[in-house]
Amino acid sequence: MAPLLSDLTKNFFVAFGMVLGASLLAGVWSILLFKPPAPYMLEIARNVKVWALVAAVGGTIDPIRIIEFNLAEGYLNSAFRQILYIVSAFVGAQMGTALIEWICEGGLRA
């Protein structure tokens, strides 16, 4: 159970960090160009979300192949584990995007 939880949190934080880091760097870039950072940060957060998910689960099509092979062979535990990795990375990327949206759309003004 511990290795599974460790891998799930790793996938979550890799995807979360990629979205957050790319968006913050886009904000720095826009400030250097004397433009408002929020539109650029939001655009990058939404666009990089898919790539963060792909990078977190391995960067290739291999996780999908593993799921397909394990389902075909009847190894549901391994297939379920791969699906959990993908879901964990998706949640991390989604939460990173939500955080950037919250920051850019006035969540800190309260």
Rank of each mutant, 00 (worst) to 15 (best):
M1Q: 09
A2I: 11
L4S: 09
S6P: 05
T9A: 14
K10I: 13
N11L: 06
N11I: 01
N11Q: 11
F12W: 12
F13C: 11
V14G: 12
A15Q: 10
F16L: 13
G17K: 01
G17F: 02
M18W: 00
M18V: 07
M18H: 01
V19G: 01
L20S: 04
L20F: 07
L20A: 02
A22I: 03
L24R: 01
L25Q: 14
L25A: 15
A26C: 05
G27V: 03
W29H: 13
W29T: 14
I31W: 08
L32R: 03
L33M: 14
P36A: 13
P36I: 03
P36S: 14
P37N: 04
P39S: 02
Y40G: 13
Y40F: 13
M41V: 00
M41P: 07
L42F: 00
L42I: 00
L42A: 01
E43A: 06
E43T: 01
E43L: 04
I44R: 00
I44L: 08
A45M: 01
R46Y: 04
R46L: 09
N47L: 05
V48T: 04
V48R: 02
K49Y: 04
K49H: 07
V50S: 14
V50H: 14
V50G: 08
W51N: 12
L53W: 02
L53H: 03
A55D: 12
A55P: 12
A56F: 11
A56L: 10
V57L: 12
V57N: 11
V57F: 14
V57P: 11
G58E: 11
G58F: 03
G59D: 10
I61Q: 09
I61H: 03
I61W: 07
D62P: 03
D62C: 06
D62N: 13
P63F: 01
P63I: 00
P63L: 03
I64L: 15
R65G: 13
R65S: 15
R65N: 15
I67T: 08
E68K: 08
N70V: 04
L71Y: 10
L71V: 12
A72L: 11
E73N: 06
G74A: 02
G74L: 04
Y75I: 06
L76K: 05
N77V: 08
S78G: 05
A79C: 04
F80D: 08
F80L: 14
R81H: 11
I83D: 10
I83S: 15
L84R: 02
L84P: 07
I86D: 03
V87E: 12
V87G: 04
A89M: 10
F90P: 09
V91M: 08
V91L: 10
V91W: 00
A93E: 10
A93I: 06
M95L: 15
G96M: 04
T97N: 15
A98S: 13
A98H: 06
L99W: 04
E101Y: 03
E101C: 03
W102I: 01
W102C: 04
I103Y: 13
I103R: 02
C104T: 05
C104G: 04
C104M: 07
C104H: 02
C104I: 00
E105I: 00
E105F: 02
E105M: 07
E105V: 00
E105W: 02
G106Y: 08
G106L: 07
G106E: 13
G107D: 12
G107L: 13
G107H: 11
R109W: 12
R109C: 08
A110R: 11
